[in-house]
Design a protein around this nucleic acid. Sequence first.
DNA 1: TAAGGTACTCACCTTTTGGTAAGTTATGGG
DNA 2: CCCATAACTTACCAAAAGGTGAGTACCTTA
Lengths: 135, 135
Amino acid sequence: MGMEATVWPTTLPEDLRAHLPEGLADGVFPAGCPSRTVLDHITSKWGVLILLALSEGEQRWSELRRRAEGISEKMLAQTLKTLERDGLVLRKAQPVIPPRVDYSLTERGYELSGLLVPLVAWAYNNADDILNGQR
Amino acid sequence: MGMEATVWPTTLPEDLRAHLPEGLADGVFPAGCPSRTVLDHITSKWGVLILLALSEGEQRWSELRRRAEGISEKMLAQTLKTLERDGLVLRKAQPVIPPRVDYSLTERGYELSGLLVPLVAWAYNNADDILNGQR
DNA sequence: TAAGGTACTCACCTTTTGGTAAGTTATGGG
DNA sequence: CCCATAACTTACCAAAAGGTGAGTACCTTA
């Protein structure tokens, strides 16, 4: 009897770590590595929000502005451009006046959003506990 | 016959979206929302790498420096402090000389790393395709 | 006595990121 | 003729992130 510490695994279960590629298995992420660049894009403040919004389906510029609350036009343009270059977002512009542009996820972007959504949901669900528990 | 476009779902499957909390279901992330803060911490450049490294188990300061290749001492200290305050990382300091400090994931941090690892692995696996496909 | 080891902190400076407000385009409507 | 509209671009400035190098603490070993 007496106090007993709660115990949980100290490393990830084998089946999860088994899916890690080689050079990553020891937790080392080489500095110049291309994956660092990609990781920066997809975990950027606005990148996450845009990908999340687009996981709800095709949307216009103005709709994206509304959903990623607080984003400036400059950052929206910049973020969309990066995601488009990365092949995660598809831009369809119709030659009408006033202009109409629809954004959607590519197949790759769609695949990614499947990983991003649980992460965002986790942050959303744990945010209050995390920030309240600080002295 | 002729050309046929590859088709994939344009929104996430119902069972995934069903796990999204209320206010998130329409893809809107309120600007002042606490989850924005938490999301920024866990998707920060160095935060991701530290959490990833720690998913391999308890590690010392110097070992973390090595694994998060390229990080400066200043940023390592800062990132660890944030993650510790957020209750994701546990710091155990031993009063010996020279000092010895071990860092590990808390239960909450461990839970999080289960979502982060697939994301990082995805970035690692797709990085070359993504960066090569740009003109 | 002096050097070495570990985990930091601090001050200073550079680089990157991001916001603001204005300008652009082309057309249809009043 | 002029304004509104949607989707941007640009120039300029402020703020935040991040790097560098020095300093600190304390004991052990040479």
